[in-house]
Nucleic acid binder design. Structure first.
Length: 116
DNA sequence: GAGGTGACTGCGA
DNA sequence: CTCGCAGCCACCT
């Protein structure tokens, strides 16, 4: 196939990036919430996969604010350093313990609830 | 163009 | 909370 990059056309990556960038500082969201908001619904994997390309997104996407439904920093190994994700969140006021967001229900930000 | 992969989720136990 | 199973779909080779 042609060597088409994700940026050759309007892909849902951009939609994911747009939503993630809307996450307020000190808040976090989940892949499922974003997926549902975008309509991908059950395919929350696609959100995670989209985040895989977030490093190349401009402006930068605050992927550290996106965790799985358990509040676990599942994607921290995809950052520059495995500790960067936690450090960024703590710097924003989000408490992290054992790679898990503390008070997750309180800092959770649901796009389908806030944006719609 | 078929097959493999994955930063996930929901449900049952 | 943990463990296991199945479904899900865009992207890459």
């Amino acid at each position: 196939m042609k060597a088409k990059n994700s940026f050759d056309r309007h892909s849902f990556f951009e939609d994911v990036f747009a939503v993630v960038r809307l996450i307020p500082k000190g808040r976090v969201s989940t892949y499922g919430a974003i997926a549902k908001y975008l309509g991908t619904g059950k395919s929350s994997r696609m959100v995670g996969w989209a985040m895989n390309a977030s490093h190349a997104a401009i402006p930068h996407v605050p992927a550290q604010r996106v965790v799985n439904r358990n509040g676990l920093l599942t994607g921290k190994f995809h950052f520059t350093t495995p500790t960067l994700m936690q450090e960024l969140l703590e710097k924003e006021g989000v408490k992290i313990e054992k790679d898990t967001v503390q008070n997750f229900e309180k800092v959770f930000w649901n796009p389908a609830d806030e944006l719609l």
